[in-house]
Simulated assay, not measured.
Amino acid sequence: MSVQEDKQVIKSARTFSYLFGYLPVAATNLAKFKKRKAGMSQQDYSRLIHSEPQKWASGIMKRTGSQVEVSGLEHLPEGPVLFVSNHEGNFDIPVLLSSIPKPFGFISKEEVKKFPIIPSYMEEMNCVFLDRTDRRSAFKSVTDTIEKLREGHSILIFPEGTRSKGQGLKEFKAGFMRIAKDAAVPVVPIAIEGTSRIMEDNNNQIRPARVTVQVLEPVTPEQLESAGVKAAQVVRDRIEQALDTIQ
């Protein structure tokens, strides 16, 4: 094994050790947060809950040695939004949790519930769980997401459905447009590039990478309505154009 390969193995071990080693601390803090919930506004509690995953995600990214460049945070509006991002790699969620100051939940695979502690946090973050093998679960995930947005929570969705692993932007499943239109919230497109170089490109070993996150101008409910059946393509085009600008 070469020196470079040795470094990759060590970096991978440190990253995954932190990923799961932080869970006892997170569990203790979650119990404290829940006790404070009754005396807090929804907005303040969301910020409090978001602070812990943000620390966790920042710690993970630090251990990968990656450089994350974020732009467009000035585009974040007040109130609930549907974040719509391309999905390049497994590190998309840690990158976005550590980069986006606005609290949000996200749609996640049902299998995540098998992990300790993490699902409890995700429920408090207003994440939505999806069983892709069950049509009823897919329908419920849509209605649950709409309900959470109407309640004032922001949600992140990856409309490609699966990771592109750096192989170019895939087609967007149009179902996310129903969520945005029924909830009457803005869509905030996010273009993320470089996460696949952290792990997927390296046989699942961790390497430092340059990652860029671009928060794009919101697409208002009125603009979505005006675009009609082309609304999903409008959002995808904005993300694609942003990705094309990366050098």
Rank of each mutant, 00 (worst) to 15 (best):
T162I: 15
I157G: 02
E110M: 11
D44P: 02
A138T: 14
T143P: 05
V142T: 07
F158E: 10
L76E: 15
L48T: 05
S154P: 01
L73H: 10
P103Y: 11
K62P: 07
V81F: 05
I93F: 00
P53M: 06
S71K: 14
I155C: 00
T28I: 09
V128A: 02
S108K: 08
A138S: 14
K114N: 03
L149G: 07
G79H: 03
E69N: 13
M122D: 05
K35A: 06
T143Q: 12
A26E: 14
S99H: 01
E74L: 06
T28N: 14
V112K: 05
A38S: 10
F91Y: 12
A38N: 07
V128N: 11
M122N: 01
E160Y: 07
F139Q: 13
I107R: 09
Y45Q: 15
A27V: 04
R150Y: 02
T145W: 00
G168Y: 00
E69H: 13
V70Y: 01
E123M: 15
Y121I: 00
G105Q: 13
R136H: 01
K114R: 04
F33C: 14
R132Q: 09
T133P: 00
F33L: 07
I155V: 07
A57L: 01
Y121K: 09
I60M: 08
H87C: 13
T145L: 04
D92P: 00
H87T: 02
A31H: 01
Q43L: 06
K32V: 03
E52G: 02
Q167D: 09
K35R: 08
G65I: 06
N90I: 06
D44G: 11
I155D: 08
L48R: 01
E147K: 10
L149R: 09
E88H: 03
D131A: 02
I157P: 00
V84F: 15
I118R: 15
P159I: 04
L97Q: 10
K32W: 09
P80M: 04
A38R: 08
F158T: 08
N86T: 10
R36G: 14
S66Y: 02
I118M: 15
F106M: 09
E124D: 01
Q42G: 02
K62C: 01
L156A: 04
R36H: 01
F115Y: 06
F83W: 08
